[in-house]
């Protein structure tokens, strides 16, 4: 009978501990060693606290915000010369989601811009994690570099944090 009680107690405790062992949350935070983008003297790391980045970049040419489908908080888009900076909310803070090149006046930290050749991309970044006729995708840490191709020429560049929005 004593054994029976021990078994039941152990079962109950294992359920309780089993239920409390997992959990954890995915808060925003700059991605270590991932792709980043530098504008002037401001280095933009994906997943970084957006307020500090915006402060460094100065006033945007355009600003747009939109509510997400259901959640509180706003997805924000800051347009600067040559690129757009997208942020996402997490709790009471905004974090950098992505940088999207809008013309050929800006380039990646390794010198790739819209209009570069595919060879220049592979020389700079090596073999892509994913490759098709239309794009090359590179992954590093929790970041991604997506390069669109129009024939042999780069047509788009997006550096983004890999997060669950």
């Amino acid at each position: 009978m004593r054994n029976m009680r021990r078994i039941m107690t152990a079962a109950a405790l294992s359920m309780v501990f089993g239920l409390t062992a997992c959990g954890g949350s995915d808060k925003g935070g700059a991605s270590d060693g991932g792709y980043s983008f530098t504008s002037g003297s401001t280095k933009i790391e994906m997943g970084a606290d957006a307020s500090k980045v915006i402060e460094g970049l100065g006033e945007a040419d355009e600003y747009f915000e939109s509510e997400s489908c259901a959640f509180e908080g706003l997805d924000k888009v800051y347009t600067y010369p040559g690129f757009k900076l997208n942020t996402y909310p997490d709790g009471d803070k905004d974090y950098v989601l992505s940088v999207v090149f809008m013309d050929d006046t800006v380039s990646t930290d390794k010198g790739i811009s819209i209009g570069s050749t595919k060879d220049e991309v592979t020389d700079a970044y090596g073999e892509a994690s994913e490759e098709s006729a239309a794009k090359l995708v590179y992954e590093s840490g929790d970041t991604e570099l997506a390069i669109g191709l129009n024939g042999d020429s780069v047509s788009s560049v997006e550096i983004s944090a890999v997060v669950e929005e």
């Binding site: 999207v100 047509s155 997006e158």
Partner: peptide, 12 residues
């Protein structure tokens, strides 16, 4: 107004 649409790597 809306921001200019992103230039996508692949429109497929």
């Amino acid at each position: 107004g809306f921001p200019e649409p992103d230039i996508l790597a692949d429109y497929t």
